[in-house]
Amino acid sequence: MLSRTADHLYWMARYLERAECLARMLDAQYRLSLLPRPPEAALQGWTATLVSLGMEQGFLAQHGAVTPRSAFDYLAFDREHPGSILRCLQAARENARAVRGTITSEVWETLNETWLQSRSFGTHVPEHSRGEFLEWVKYRAHLTRGVIEGTMLRDEAICFVRIGTFLERADNTTRLLEARWRDPGGSGERLANEASEWGVLLRAMSAFELYRRVCREGVTPLRVTALLLMREDFPQAVHRCLDELQSHLAAVANDQSGDTVRRAGELHAQFHYGRFEELCADGVAAFLDRVQARLRDLGCRIANDFLVPLGAA
């Protein structure tokens, strides 16, 4: 397969996944805003979300100060902001368009239709319809994944789609947790609220029911964090994503990818054989930082070994 084709498939998948993860993060913040919290806690939550995404500077340069409404619009609808959901959906579609000969026409039509429909959303969307928008994003992402699974040939192409999907998802799960840990309203003193605040996070990750099934104890920050990092059977968990990443990387291995496969395996082993308490011995935030750095490194290596090296295009 052409390296450039693999590159477009990989980024098509990453942008789609990123749009979905952004929708989940916004969903978490949106639901939190419905809880009886002091207004400053809500603002801290939005600031923490922007910081964990690395978008705080860009946002402040444009808007000056954080308000729930402006943060939501910036992350969801802002067509000038390359990190917004609408721009991610557009980027996914542009990448798909570049390889529409490689993906099935069903996959292309699904992504194209998502983009066509996305054009009707914008900052004019009334407050009460914002939840619907987030639901729509998640639904289109589910649909697209289903169409990919249901129609694409099991060859290299789908491997690169999955590599993009799971690398992006692992990264986003860590960012979502990071945002929650940075938001002081979500940990520490106010224990009464804690359970509901972390419950909100679980719901945003479609994980609340799963949590109840696998963990019959009360919702605490550490338990939720452990679940979203370490469970191998949970679709959004980093461990699960690394399982997938490792096996698809092995399937496309070439002459120069040995070290990349090894590093992916090394990271996976931490989650597979490591103890959560030991990994987080110096704090959850520090561990999340380390994992993000490793994922970034893997992204660069994958680009160099298989795709169009970053910055070369």
Binding site: L2, S3, T5, T102, F160, V252, N254, D255, L307
Partner: peptide
């Protein structure tokens, strides 16, 4: 394959495309 110029290169008077397998 649908290729762009950047996907192709010439070596020893022969044309090649860059693929994920070399």
């Amino acid at each position: 394959e649908l290729v762009e110029g950047q996907d192709l290169f010439v070596r020893d008077e022969a044309l090649y495309m860059r693929t994920t397998r070399g």
